[in-house]
Design a protein around this nucleic acid. Sequence first.
DNA 1: TCTGGGGTCCTAGGACCC
DNA 2: TCTGGGGTCCTAGGACCC
Length: 422
Amino acid sequence: MIALVDCNSFYASCELVFRPDLVGRPVVVLSNNDGCVIAANKEAKALADIPMFEPVFKIKKQLIANNVVFFSSNYTLYGEMSQRVVNILKTFSSKVEVYSIDESFIDLSTVPHEELEAFGHQIKNTIYRLTGLPVGVGIAKTKVLSKLANKMSKKIPNKNHVCVINSDDDRVKALKWSPVTGVWGIGKKHSERVIAIGVATAYDFTQLPMAWVRKEMTVVGERTWRELRGESVMEFITEPKKKKAIGTAKSFGKKLESLDIIEEACSYYVGEVAEVLRAQNSCASAIHIFLVTNFFSTKDKQYSNSITVKLAMPTNDTFILVTEAKKALHLIYKEGYKYKKVGVNLLGITPEEYVQGNLFKIPTESKKTLTKVVDELNVKFGKLKVSSALVGTRVKEWELIKEERSPRYTTQWKEILTLKDT
DNA sequence: TCTGGGGTCCTAGGACCC
DNA sequence: TCTGGGGTCCTAGGACCC
């Protein structure tokens, strides 16, 4: 059996751990640049007119009228809280698959069937006691069914956030309970397609002929279909795989026109992704740069372009990557537009130890030592404290807007929580 | 005025190889 | 008159996830 443990309203819950004074009030967390609502606690969700991913400016009045508390996103805090949860899960099972920042699958094959529900409650209570975060636990034979059980654990009140699909009878009931939209792996497009042919519930979906599912939804759909029918076909992945692409693309705090400032943002992003690349001991053999104007704007002229450049030799050296990225950016930049976003992707990622030189270049050791020292300094003194001068220094011009960011309670001594006598 | 960011997997089709 | 067969690799685009 497999459990899916998922934190409720994760980002909002993280904020509330450190702000118990706000418990009971509606709380939302905003995306980068405070653009959209990306998380809401149950009090905020109860105000039905706050849809997720709604641009904040459209609903700001309602939020204020309902006394909603806003937070800008604080990924440092969420990442660290996530790690705490994972550490606890590892005490319950030797096999844990971290699926996302707020969800993990854990293997429960050693737990007797009749004890599963109690075990689920124990996981839930322990996490709450040690971190302050509320979680839901879904337990079933396959990953897709445990996702479904997890959803039931939250939606069905008497489940009390733990739900076990233990028998085939349970499974059929669960499938009939679940609308086909919302099944893990069946997104908007596919659910429209199956609804059009009369499928309403997950159960109906499992009654479709396999050949149809395979043809219309590829092997991905077929896997979902099999897993819903109780056949476990999805691998349990305990070792995180190395990334095949590493990218970043963030909207600017304001629209930018001039090439040199965009260049600095671009170089800064290259610095970020190169660090991730080195952390997984890999090199990139190509770099992809894109540049876009604000496509929501109706009055500004629109332009977007992208370019992929192959590198002479795979590398993870920030200096080389920044130089190549700038050259590429110059090729796609056109004057006279108001740009909203620049993006960087590292592609063709290969393990560092397999990098081959070529007729004209051989890998050099000295630069490797330099970047290694730079990485170590940054781990010790903070993100990108030491970086190439190519990256520039005018960060303020393009940086993200985060007006309501909470303190980084768990990672910065200066921002640690203080307790007062009352 | 203001509209997120980071990923994975699969397939079809083209270019190329012997 | 007749014009092969079996592959690999790469890319773009689509679908999905959180």
